[in-house]
Amino acid sequence: MADHAGASGVRTWSTVDVDAGDAFAYWREEICRTFVPLRPRLLGQRDQPFRGRVDTRTISVATMSRIRAAPQEVVRDPADGDQLEGSWFVNLQIHGTSAVTLADEQRVLRAGDAVLLHAEQHYRMTFGSDFEQACIRLPNWYVRETLGPSDRLHGRVLPASPLTAILRPYVVAAVDQWDADSAAPASMMALAHITALLRTAVSDGATAANVDTDRTVRLLLEIRARHRDPDLDATAVAHHLGISERTLHASLAPTGMTFGQHLRLARLRTVALTRAETGCTVLEAAHGAGFCDVSSYYRARRKLDAGVWR
């Protein structure tokens, strides 16, 4: 399967059916076409043919990809051009390690770490062994509007944490698990949650000084763990965590989403995943996800589709 577009909207590039002698040349051509012009270089002498696979899906303004490949080095030089007008990458290390070099500074990513990289800046990524990464590509304007000033984001490493741990299943599920019927709504939910998580992870300055990031993470995890309870509300979560409702809402403010929005997104995502995995009815999935009735589910869907959350 050198190049395949599935019915679910996932596009796959793989070296599995490419002649061994042509595998890396094919990989070099395809990743440059899929992402941005890059300069890949094979590392070391290998007894086995080069192996690589990219699964990617476009979700609104974002492109989410899952990359699995053999050792290599990839250089991005802005002078090589770009088929899109400026992009940001969020690379999340799933397996293996990678070294990111910017100017003379090198940063090592281990499983669970993530890094933000700008396509208009020079960087090098070195993968010394077989690896897997999740990659989110976002346009410049989206990063500016959702994450704020981006002048200090290039090369920013987000160490492994509950925040990055939450990011991984969203990207992997968006690429691998959702069928054509569930992909669009579930993926839009994923993008909304990913943006909220990234906003929290990169927040600093006055925001970081006034907000307990650990508390924010605990709140997100609490919502994720208990969203199937139809009676769950901000009062119950605040009481369980021993904080006031005012503190709860202030702790979620850096994500750019309210408690109710996070709760609805968690339930909508569960409906989409449940239907994709089991083929059950909307009614069954909605009840299992914490919606009181189907009407509540459809109201939440309409708000999501319209971008209106009040």
Rank of each mutant, 00 (worst) to 15 (best):
A5E: 12
V10D: 06
F24C: 00
A25K: 07
T34N: 10
V36D: 08
R51I: 04
R57P: 01
R57I: 14
I59L: 12
A62M: 08
S65I: 04
R66G: 10
A79D: 14
E85Y: 11
W88K: 07
F89I: 05
F89M: 11
Q93P: 02
Q93D: 01
T97P: 02
D104S: 12
R110V: 15
A114D: 06
V115T: 07
H122I: 13
F127W: 04
S129P: 03
W141D: 13
R144V: 13
P149R: 03
S150M: 09
L158D: 08
S161T: 11
P162H: 05
P162C: 05
Q177K: 13
A180S: 12
S182V: 12
A184I: 15
M189A: 15
M189H: 09
A190P: 00
I194Y: 03
L197F: 09
T207G: 04
N210D: 14
V211N: 11
D212W: 02
V217G: 07
L219V: 01
E222P: 07
R224W: 12
R224G: 10
D233Q: 02
A236T: 11
H249G: 05
F259R: 04
H262N: 02
V271Q: 01
T274F: 06
L283Q: 15
L283T: 15
E284V: 09
A285E: 04
A286T: 03
V294E: 14
S296I: 00
K303I: 08
L304S: 02
V308W: 08
